[in-house]
Design a protein around this nucleic acid. Structure first.
Length: 875
RNA sequence: GGGAGUUUAGCUCAGCUGGUUCAGAGCAUCUGCCUUACAAGCAGAGGGUCGGGGGUUCGAACCCCUCAACUCCCA
């Protein structure tokens, strides 16, 4: 049966993935090989594959596959994250659609629904990764809420609490009124918004018709004012020091304070203080011991302190209060104003600073080794520029709010035995808690009488243990697996989760393993669309990766996403890149078709083939070194491009064209064998990038019988490199290009054979004589002592090449061309001689540079000489 | 407001310690070709004051100053 002209990826992808799985190639167990470990950044359990995952996972798979071929024990641990806020929101939404309110359910009922849903829909993304070819060790798939994993998380909480690094307290936190939970500082995204600045008059208490005007962007919080504040140096207000004002609407009397925090330039220079609803006001409130009036319910509506606005949403209340202030004459004016507002990373709701009782991790000690070991490159960042960002965060790290008012997640193991703020103990089980409580108070408690904290932990409080817990390193310390695989080698992730995740894994690594969690962190860029916009579900500008795989093949897509994506740079993605990737796989396919069709006959190897083999061997070895180097530096795109060019240009366009016998002619045995051997090496080099087609070709090309698979083939070692030969071949390429160029310019058909004469070849033939004859389609290649008249010519490396004219050639055009060349070279000579006649250059430049300039001068002079003669010859 | 980074061909990017690897690559474009593995291809070609200005140097894409634009991080 005829091999199809076009590579069809669909069927073979399924076939080979199943084969690899069946053979257990992805599965790793500790042995005496060197381990190479990557833990996947666990995607949300509810997630579907998007372009970011594509990029990220392809890179990881490339690294893993190459490591496997290098003979390392490669282990890529997959898994998913429970993603508490996102998942809970999804489940709440889904229940709502079924007419069930979360508030109508008990915690256990809700979790029942959640787990059912997770079992049904969770982990779709892992199945999608398989389509991409990801060679994860699926037997090791973990989920951050697995039993043993959860145990680690809870135990870490208990441990940090016992070490005094976790505390509970009332603090100003970022409240998400939509998700109804506190979130960490990192989960708040600040954006500039167009808002308005409201100027509101407050009457001075005890004085007749004396007013002071404040400026605020949040008039709805007036009802929570417990002071106003001016700068002590502000002359405008000195007479008001010590006085009080009456808060409009609330009619409460509050003091005028002085503090240099107040910016005299901003607004009116007079600030209202609402300690419950602004972090800066909160600080001033603490300083002056002010009362805090919390105006809002958890969902962002006003509570009883909102008086007649009770139950109204905060933004609606802003409008209504503006109206009331206006009607009652308190509002003196409003101005347009741009300010920064915090939004929830998850729900996009406007964050409400809110005072509440939460759990925190004290980060100071944890940050120390985490900062140090990144700065001293024990842990390497690629690209290095992210070290700056990392350092800045670490040096200014704030305590981490880890409690979330949700149900989906790891429940905080704190147990309350009374109503007092400190009436709790922290323990794994209620029974343990009961005995601890007894120890603490001297009173006997029954386990059932204790009430467990209702909150769960921040998702990242579990994912920061990922590199340890996927090997059960906390529940079974020093087990053989953790000892073998930890620290892992490379982490591949986006810079957007450097603080959420990377930094905290480093902290947990040093705290619990006394060692780094990984040696290298490769930060990928963000995948953007052609217009430079971030790909997102809401914009609908993200192509469906699975559809892309179906269209271009998994290999094509993998090559497409990697071909222009250097570390840390954004990847402006366009499907044309997948097209390029697919074309590349097709090129490989057709190279195979050519080689496989050659019929072997035992006869002497042509000289040109012999030369091509010598050359390509050197070329391949040299490029292999470059590819290895690119990998070592995490320059994955470069490694791919080097591989791409080695195959497309060097192997297909040059090597195969030289080797290839004439139409329906057989090939000699040796050439075919060597070509197959080259092809196999090339397939190995492409395999990390394009696993499916390479496995297919590997078998088609003859490895089927040997029952070995390319996925476990050995990465080649670079053999000898003959640099002189490479240089020589380069020159021959140029000769051929020049011949082709003359053909093109003179409209000489490729089929017409030409004669080529060379002047200036001192000893015998050109190295690649036979190659030039073949690729130039020459009838003869001869060596002469005199310049030829009536011929096209070109000059390379001091040698003149002549192709005699046919009958009617345009000598005038040829002459113009040479004249232009002459002009150029004269200009060049002038600049070189300029340098050489500059005494300072000659005396201060290194001698090698001066020498090379002198050589340039000589070359230019002789070329000018040749060209001048040529013009004369043309008449 | 503070900090970091980027700016090189139409697009995406290389360019290491200032000097023949110095102006490069891939894609795109243009021109010939359905030449015998591949038109998802082959062969050629044209594209750049290296963001602007100034300086240091015998010599600057590279070092310094300055301006501009964009991006990211933090508050």
């Amino acid at each position: 049966m005829e091999t199809p002209k076009i590579f069809e990826p669909g069927k073979i992808e399924v076939k080979w993935y199943a084969h690899w799985m069946e053979k257990g190639y992805f599965h790793s167990v500790p042995d005496n090989r060197e381990p190479y470990t990557i833990v996947i950044p666990p995607p949300n359990i509810t997630g579907v594959l998007h372009m970011g995952h594509m990029l990220n996972s392809t890179i990881q798979d490339v690294l893993i596959r190459r490591a496997r071929m290098l003979g390392k024990n490669a282990c890529w641990v997959p898994g998913t994250d429970h993603a508490s806020i996102a998942t809970e929101a999804k489940i709440v939404q889904k229940l709502k659609a079924e007419g069930i309110q979360k508030s109508d359910l008990t915690r256990d009922e809700f979790l029942g629904h959640a787990f059912k849903w997770k079992d049904k829909h969770g982990g779709i993304i892992l199945e999608q990764l398989k389509k991409l070819g990801a060679s994860c060790d699926w037997e090791r798939t973990h989920f951050t809420m697995d039993k043993e994993y959860s145990e680690s998380v809870v135990n870490v909480f208990i441990d940090l609490f016992n070490k005094g690094k976790i505390y509970r307290g009332v603090r100003m936190v970022n409240w998400d009124p939509e998700a109804l939970t506190a979130v960490s500082d990192e989960e708040v995204i600040y954006k500039e918004v167009n808002s308005r600045l409201f100027y509101v008059r407050y009457k001075i208490d005890g004085l007749d018709d004396e007013w002071i005007t404040i400026a605020t962007t949040r008039p709805e919080t007036i009802l929570g004012d417990t002071a106003i504040c001016v700068n002590p140096l502000d002359k405008r207000f000195i007479h008001l020091h010590g006085k009080s004002v009456i808060v409009p609407i609330a009619n409460r009397i509050v003091p005028i304070l002085t503090d240099d925090y107040v910016d005299m330039e901003f607004g009116t220079g007079c600030l209202k203080i609402t300690p419950a609803h602004d972090i800066n006001d909160y600080e001033i409130g603490r300083k002056f011991n002010l009362a805090s009036i919390d105006l809002f319910n958890e969902n962002g509506t006003l509570n009883e302190y909102g008086l007649h606005y009770q139950g109204v949403d905060r933004f609606e209340a802003r409008k209504l209060i503006e109206k009331e202030l206006h009607e009652t004459g308190f509002l003196s004016k409003t101005e347009d104003h741009i300010n920064k507002v915090g939004f929830s990373e998850r729900t996009n709701a406007v964050i409400e600073p809110k005072l509440s009782m939460q759990w925190f991790v004290d980060m100071k000690d944890l940050a120390k080794p985490a900062l140090e070991n990144v700065m001293n490159n024990s842990i390497q960042f690629y690209p290095e520029k992210f070290k700056n960002t990392y350092r800045h965060w670490m040096e200014n790290v704030k305590d981490w709010c880890i409690s979330r008012q949700l149900w989906w997640g790891h429940r905080i193991p704190a147990w309350y035995y009374g109503e007092g703020v400190n009436d709790f103990v922290v323990a794994l089980t209620a029974e343990k808690a009961a005995s601890l409580a007894q120890e603490k108070t001297g009173v006997a408690y029954k386990a059932e009488a204790l009430k467990q904290d209702e909150d769960v932990l921040d998702t990242w409080f579990s994912s920061w243990l990922w590199p340890i817990s996927v090997f059960n390193g906390l529940t079974q310390p020093n087990n053989p697996e953790i000892n073998y695989y930890y620290p892992t080698n490379d982490l591949v992730t986006g810079p957007d989760i450097m603080f959420f995740w990377v930094a905290r894994m480093v902290m947990a690594g040093y705290e619990y393993k006394g060692d780094m969690p990984f040696k290298n962190v490769y930060y990928t860029g963000i995948v953007r669309d052609k217009l430079g916009r971030k790909m997102s579900k809401s914009l609908g500008n993200s192509p469906d990766p699975i559809a892309l795989i179906e269209q271009y093949g998994a290999d094509g897509v993998r090559v497409g996403v990697l071909i222009s994506s250097p570390a840390g740079n954004d990847l402006p993605f366009d499907t044309s890149q997948c097209e390029q990737g697919r074309n590349f796989t097709n090129k490989l396919w057709n190279a195979y078709r050519l080689v496989s069709a050659w019929e072997v006959v035992d006869f002497e190897q042509p000289h040109s083939a012999n030369m091509a083999i010598d050359w390509f061997e050197s070329k391949l070895n040299k490029t292999l070194l470059e590819i290895n180097d690119a990998f070592d530096k995490f320059r994955i795109s470069d490694a791919l491009m080097l591989t791409y060019k080695l195959i497309w240009d060097d192997f297909c366009s040059w090597y195969l064209e030289i080797i290839k016998p004439g139409y329906e002619q057989p090939i000699d045995k040796l050439s075919k064998e060597v070509t197959i051997a080259f092809f196999e090496k090339l397939l190995i080099l492409v395999h990390p990038f394009a696993p499916f087609i390479t496995e297919e070709l590997w078998h088609l090309i003859g490895n089927d019988k040997k029952e070995n698979d390319i996925i476990v083939a050995s990465w080649p070692n670079a053999g000898k490199i003959d640099d002189a030969l490479l240089v020589n071949f380069n020159q021959s390429e140029e000769v051929v290009s020049n011949i082709r160029n003359i053909r093109k310019q003179q409209n000489i058909a490729n089929k017409v054979k030409l004669s080529l004469f060379v002047k200036g070849q001192v000893n015998g033939q050109l190295n690649f004589h036979s190659v030039i004859v073949k690729l130039g389609n020459l009838s003869c290649l001869e060596y002469v002592n005199e310049s030829m008249k009536g011929a096209f010519s070109f000059v390379l490396e001091g040698k003149e090449f002549f192709i005699p004219f046919g009958e009617e050639m345009d000598t005038a055009a040829e002459k113009d061309k040479i004249l232009a060349e002459l002009e150029y070279i004269k200009g060049f000579l002038k600049s070189v001689q300029g340098k050489l006649s500059n005494e300072k250059f000659v005396s201060s430049a290194p001698s090698s540079v001066v020498e090379s300039e002198k050589k340039k001068e000589q070359d230019a002079l002789s070329t000018i000489d040749i060209l001048t003669k040529k013009i004369a010859d043309l008449g």
